[in-house]
């Protein structure tokens, strides 16, 4: 199948072509998942956020105004949903809703289980969790998703200067954390 531009896929979907939406989902589900996973540090929650974002995309795609790139728009939704998820989780933890069974369930279904470098990835994920949320988000977007400061600024609505400062602090802290455990 020939490569179809994102905006053309959106137009096709808005004209009733459901396959176009499937193509958008296939193109972006991995990116949504890995962003959420980096922010949340576990497969179970990342899976939940990914499904939620896909459903939001389906419902809200008619509001996409074609002024920005589709991936910027999708990342903005992913970022917002992930931050909301973290807030909700903190509230739930405050009332001790989570228990050990839930944690076991999370680890059993993890896609990392069959990966030989699982431990190395888990170390990075744990180090990421020690960063403040803003620094973590910028670090994930810059280091793993290889976005420019301008793109991150469009998604998060923060100034480029502020993002650079956040990234610098995150980079320093992650390097320390990963080196001290060796």
């Amino acid at each position: 199948m020939d490569f179809v531009e994102d905006k053309d896929l959106v137009k096709e979907f808005l004209n009733g072509n459901e396959i176009a939406f499937r193509t958008i989902v296939d193109r972006y589900s991995k990116k949504i998942y890995w962003h959420a996973r980096g922010m949340l540090n576990n497969h179970f929650d990342a899976d939940e956020v990914t499904q939620e974002v896909i459903i939001v995309l389906y419902k809200k795609l008619h509001t996409f105004n074609f002024n920005s790139a589709l991936y910027t728009w999708i990342y903005r939704i992913t970022s917002t949903r992930t931050l909301n998820f973290i807030r909700k989780k903190k509230i739930k933890e405050l009332f001790s809703i989570f228990d050990e069974k839930y944690d076991n369930l999370k680890s059993e279904s993890d896609i990392l289980n069959n990966f030989e470098h699982k431990d190395e990835i888990e170390r990075i994920e744990k180090a990421l969790q020690k960063l403040p949320i803003k620094q973590r988000e910028v670090f994930i977007m810059k280091s793993f998703e290889e976005m420019s400061y301008k793109e991150i600024s469009e998604i998060t609505g923060k100034s480029v200067g502020g993002l650079k400062a956040n990234y610098f602090h995150a980079l320093k802290k992650i390097t320390e954390l990963l080196n001290e455990k060796e």
Partner: peptide, 13 residues
């Protein structure tokens, strides 16, 4: 996994 997650979300829709 990513094929299945898309299918699950789409089936919910």
């Amino acid at each position: 996994y990513f094929d299945s997650i898309s299918s699950i979300a789409l089936s919910k829709i």
